[in-house]
């Protein structure tokens, strides 16, 4: 597990203006970059197995994969923020395509906490909200497990209190 203090500007759970919560964006960005490792390694292995021009191409592809996505991943991780409001949870994110999601507490059916291997190693996790609609894409990545669990319990209690029939 990586020490969170070692990462400058990792603003997990900081209360920003207007009641917005931010997420641990530095670690979130690292987790995103870590997800590039498997395809990157495959490309490097391919480069090793091939010779001549093909080797160059594969190596270039591996380098490009990291070069192109390194910076945007960091930037987009910074855009995640959420706000607990009276009746609903508001999630806001997106660098190129901006997305805002409003999930009423009374519509939440269940709340998941998931963490992939990279996220676990970095000590973060993702909170997922489910409604009766399959199109609801509401998740908050880059939460610390303790605060994610607190948030989940809070949301579950709010959902219980406001649960409305379909």
């Amino acid at each position: 597990m990586i020490d969170a203090d070692a990462l400058p500007g990792d603003g997990a759970g900081t209360l920003a203006e207007g009641g917005w919560h931010t997420v641990a964006h530095a670690r979130l960005a690292l987790a995103g970059r870590a997800r590039l490792l498997p395809p990157g390694l495959v490309l490097l292995v391919l480069a090793g197995l091939n010779g001549g021009a093909a080797r160059l191409w594969f190596a270039a592809a591996a380098a490009a994969l990291f070069a192109v996505s390194w910076y945007p991943l960091g930037r987009s991780a910074r855009t995640w923020r959420y706000r607990e409001r009276g009746e609903d949870l508001l999630i806001d994110h997106g660098l190129l395509v901006r997305r805002q999601v409003v999930v009423p507490y009374g519509r939440m059916q269940f709340v998941d906490i998931v963490a992939g291997p990279a996220e676990r190693a970095l000590g973060i996790c993702t909170l997922r909200l489910h409604t009766a609609s399959a199109s609801t894409d509401a998740r908050i990545p880059g939460l610390e497990p303790a605060s994610a669990e607190q948030l989940r319990d809070r949301l579950a209690a709010l959902g219980e209190a406001r649960m409305a029939g379909l």
Binding site: Q100, V102, R107, T131, D137
Partner: peptide
Amino acid sequence: VQSLHLVQGPWQRRLSLATISLHST
């Protein structure tokens, strides 16, 4: 209404436009 999404693509941002989805089952 189950949940609401507001999505703004890059081109829409230039034009100050946004698209809203109201999710149903």
